[in-house]
Amino acid sequence: MKPFAYARPGDVAEAVRDVVAEPNAVFLAGGTNLVDHLRLGVARPDLVVDVRTLTSREVTDLPDGGLRLGAASTNSQVAADPRVRERWPVLAQALLAGATGQLRNMATTGGNPLQRTRCVYFQDVTTPCNKREPGSGCSAVGGYTRYHAVLGTPAALPDPTAPETCIATHPSDMAVALAALDAQVQVLGPAGERTVPFTELHRLPGDDPSRDTVLEHGDLITAIDLPALPAGTRSAYRKVRDRASYAFALISVAAAVTPDGDLRLALGGVAHKPWRATRAEEVLRGQQLTEDAVRAAIAAELAAAQPQPGIDSGNGFKIPLVARTVLATVRGLPPEEQS
């Protein structure tokens, strides 16, 4: 652990200024991810700016029927909010499927989507990792890939020495639900406020795996907005993991079906970002959600999937698992309300 300065400024504007002024500064919220990284040497900031008490803890109604989740609202709080439970159950379920009660009490709306990958090589500073140390290579290729990506990767077994190689997944459950819900991220940056669609917040590795999101240095998430869903929308989150609790997703599925039969589908544990299954959605547009139709749609989504070989047979199992879990999730949606 490297020593760092700690600041708790007076307000969010000052917090942004503090971070902008120090190139090696980071925001701290619940600390459940960042503090681990400080200990492990994965994060080595000179300045830690604590924003937990500066951003809002409130969950407030928006005029159009949506909901605003203040960046400092906790995962437990949002999961328990009656409005979320009733109108966005997929989000409440995703939150409750994540981590443990203790962690959810600390983890925040702003911090959760910005948690970093659980790739074991990323978390171990003694192994090469392009995300942690750009240009050092990717130790995951052919290694422990059970929790790694099958979508959005150029190839199975990409070149481990290439600086752009990264096959990590984004680990958040919450983020998968937010991607399906077309959430909007409120950002305060050096140049003022702006709104980023949640599906555009995270990025694929491209030529710079060190960047998880499109946020720039000094960009602070102040809130995440949930747009209203058409009345009667049914939604659910299904997480598949190696033990019944306290484990990251092998894969996960967030699904919402509007009364018109439009499916919104996002996948977790499959890519460098929460994966909005736009291709499957397109295939299904205007169609009845029969088993066959959903199966064909998900097959289209997975057509470009690349299984990664590795220890314990790699992660090829994710491809059929995603297909099966999507079908089961859609099948298991609560019945339409009789009007």
Binding site: R118, Y121, S139, G142, G143, Y246
Partner: peptide, 27 residues
């Protein structure tokens, strides 16, 4: 439980309790 041994690196890849799974109450 499964210490995922990475022969290329020469160590257990999942060497912490978040990634090395031990049965929890819910199991």
């Amino acid at each position: 439980e499964n210490s995922a041994w990475d022969p290329a690196v020469g160590q257990v890849a999942n060497h912490d309790l978040a990634e090395y799974h031990i049965t929890v109450n819910a199991d």
